[in-house]
Amino acid sequence: DESNKPILLPNESQSFERSVQLLDQIPSYDTHKIAVLYVGEGQSNSELAILSNEHGSYRYTEFLTGLGRLIELKDCQPDKVYLGGLDVCGEDGQFTYCWHDDIMQAVFHIATLMPTKDVDKHRCDKKRHLGNDFVSIVYNDSGEDFKLGTIKGQFNFVHVIVTPLDYECNLVSLQCRKDMEGLVDTSVAKIVSDRNLPFVARQMALHANMASQVHHSRSNPTDIYPSKWIARLRHIKRLRQRICEEAAYSNPSLPLVHPPSHSKAPAQTPAEPTPGYEVGQRKRLISSVEDFTE
């Protein structure tokens, strides 16, 4: 099969070098950035008060330690540790928490760990991170309901609301924008112990962030949302095809390698009803078989 044979790379090609550099910018793992907010007593309706908090309760602090690993920003190499735009020179604080497994990295933009500057009256330095995160974990210690939209931002799609209760338990629920209701189930609340709260809140936030990324990708319907490693695979396959075309153009005697095509017509299947918005969006999480067989 010609399409699977190794090909020689061009010795000097600026377009090839640019493509390789672009490939280096696509990590081999999925990345997520999640905002974390603490809401104190009497702050449920005040964005400024929430963003001005420099610490929270003892249970909130224990919750943070379970979310991930504490890292010092100045020691991080952005090409190895995903920071979601946090500055490593102290502009966004000294520490944050991050978490990773074999296929993804997540960083938490924690408002109480970011510096509260006197010259920044409206807390814009914090909002440029927190307001651009799709998902926020809100530790609501106010005793009042927290409403979506209290923290203004164009991309605040989903809130994971943590409400501490007695007996070391917590109520965990989801809020989302109306255009996200087909992807996020907000109907079920959970009672979770303090011990298990970081794991549950983190998983709910990661799932909500993946759904938000799919939702946000609708602005470019021709580019369905893939995982990062599938995006790398697609980029490599496009690069291979372009090299083959350039080689055939410079030397017409060489065969032009095309991806294999299936001449056999697909079997006719009964027509199915058109899937609704929710089903269609969830299918976009699934990769096409052509990603692996071309």
Rank of each mutant, 00 (worst) to 15 (best):
D141G: 01
P255H: 06
A248I: 10
A231R: 08
E245P: 12
S52P: 02
R284P: 13
H129D: 05
N53C: 02
P260K: 13
H216P: 02
V107H: 14
H109V: 05
A271S: 11
F146E: 00
L165W: 03
G131K: 14
Q94F: 13
N251R: 11
V119L: 08
R284F: 08
V158E: 01
R69N: 15
N4T: 12
E2N: 07
T150L: 04
F146I: 06
F95K: 06
A111P: 05
Y249I: 12
K33P: 04
H262G: 14
V188H: 07
E72D: 09
Y38A: 00
S288Q: 11
T96Y: 05
P252N: 10
H109T: 03
D101N: 02
R234A: 11
D79Q: 06
C176L: 03
D118L: 08
V257C: 10
E290Q: 05
S142R: 00
R234Y: 04
V88W: 07
G280I: 08
R282H: 12
I26F: 07
H235W: 08
A205E: 00
R284G: 13
L130N: 04
K283Q: 12
D102L: 04
Y225Q: 13
F157D: 10
V36K: 00
N170P: 00
V162I: 13
I26D: 05
L83V: 11
P115F: 03
N220H: 08
V184M: 11
G280H: 07
T269K: 08
L148W: 15
I26C: 06
Q21D: 10
K74T: 12
C169Y: 07
L51V: 03
E2S: 05
F155L: 15
S173C: 12
Q43C: 02
P255N: 10
D194N: 04
P275L: 10
C124Y: 15
R195Y: 05
L285M: 10
V172M: 02
S46A: 05
F63N: 00
C244Q: 12
S28D: 15
S13A: 09
Q94I: 10
R218V: 08
S3N: 13
P221Q: 05
L206A: 01
P221C: 04
T65Q: 14
F63C: 00
V138E: 00
K33T: 13
S13W: 11
L48Y: 13
L113Y: 04
I34F: 04
L70T: 05
D79L: 04
F16I: 12
D75G: 12
C98R: 08
L171N: 03
V214T: 03
L130D: 05
N156Q: 14
L37R: 01
E17K: 13
T163A: 04
I71T: 09
A247G: 09
L171E: 05
S46N: 14
D185H: 04
E17H: 09
C169G: 05
K127G: 05
D75V: 05
H262W: 11
R195E: 11
K33L: 06
T293P: 12
G143F: 03
D75Q: 13
F134D: 01
G280C: 13
C169M: 04
L183Q: 04
L73Q: 15
Q281S: 10
E12A: 05
A201Q: 01
L73D: 15
S212D: 00
L23I: 08
L83I: 07
A231C: 10
G56D: 01
D125C: 12
P27Q: 08
A231M: 08
A201L: 01
F63S: 00
L165E: 02
G131M: 15
D75R: 13
G149A: 10
V20R: 07
V81A: 15
Q77H: 14
I50R: 02
K74A: 09
P164M: 00
H109F: 03
R195M: 06
Y167C: 05
V36M: 01
N209G: 13
W99K: 02
A208P: 00
P255M: 07
G182L: 11
A208Q: 01
A189V: 15
L254V: 13
N251A: 12
D145I: 05
Q281V: 10
M180R: 02
S173Y: 07
K126L: 05
R234C: 05
Y225W: 08
S212L: 07
P255W: 05
R242E: 14
L197C: 14
K147M: 08
I34L: 03
D30M: 05
K33F: 14
E181M: 11
D133L: 10
G42N: 09
T65E: 12
L148E: 15
K121S: 13
N251E: 14
P275D: 12
E294H: 08
G90F: 06
E181P: 09
S263A: 12
V279W: 11
E41G: 03
T293Y: 04
K121E: 14
G56N: 01
V39Y: 02
V36Y: 00
S187G: 10
T293G: 13
K126Q: 05
R59F: 00
M204V: 04
D79N: 06
L197A: 13
G182A: 07
H215A: 11
P226D: 08
I103K: 02
D179E: 13
Q21L: 07
L22E: 15
H129F: 13
D223I: 07
V107Q: 13
L22S: 10
L206C: 04
D194H: 01
P270A: 12
S142A: 04
W229E: 14
T186V: 09
E294R: 06
N45C: 06
T112I: 00
E272W: 09
M104K: 02
F63T: 00
N132E: 13
T96P: 03
D179R: 04
K80W: 11
E168F: 04
E245R: 10
Y97S: 05
G90D: 09
L64E: 01
P198G: 06
N11Q: 11
L197R: 00
I137D: 00
Q21W: 05
E72T: 10
V192D: 00
I230K: 10
A201C: 08
P270C: 06
P260H: 13
Y29K: 14
R128W: 08
K117C: 12
A35G: 15
H235T: 13
L48C: 09
E278T: 07
I7C: 07
V135I: 01
A49W: 01
V257P: 12
R128I: 09
G40Q: 02
F16N: 07
F108T: 01
K121W: 09
V279K: 14
R282K: 13
K33A: 13
L37T: 02
I103F: 13
K80Y: 10
T61I: 04
V36H: 00
W229C: 07
E272Q: 06
K126G: 04
E2M: 09
S46Q: 05
H55A: 08
A106G: 03
L130C: 04
L86T: 15
P221W: 04
H129W: 12
Y58E: 05
S187Q: 11
L37H: 02
C76M: 07
V39F: 01
S136D: 01
T274A: 10
Y225K: 10
T96V: 13
H235Y: 12
V172G: 00
H100E: 15
A106H: 02
H159M: 14
S52H: 04
G85K: 06
P266W: 06
T61S: 11
Q175P: 00
P27T: 04
N45Y: 03
G280W: 05
K33V: 07
I103P: 05
M204N: 01
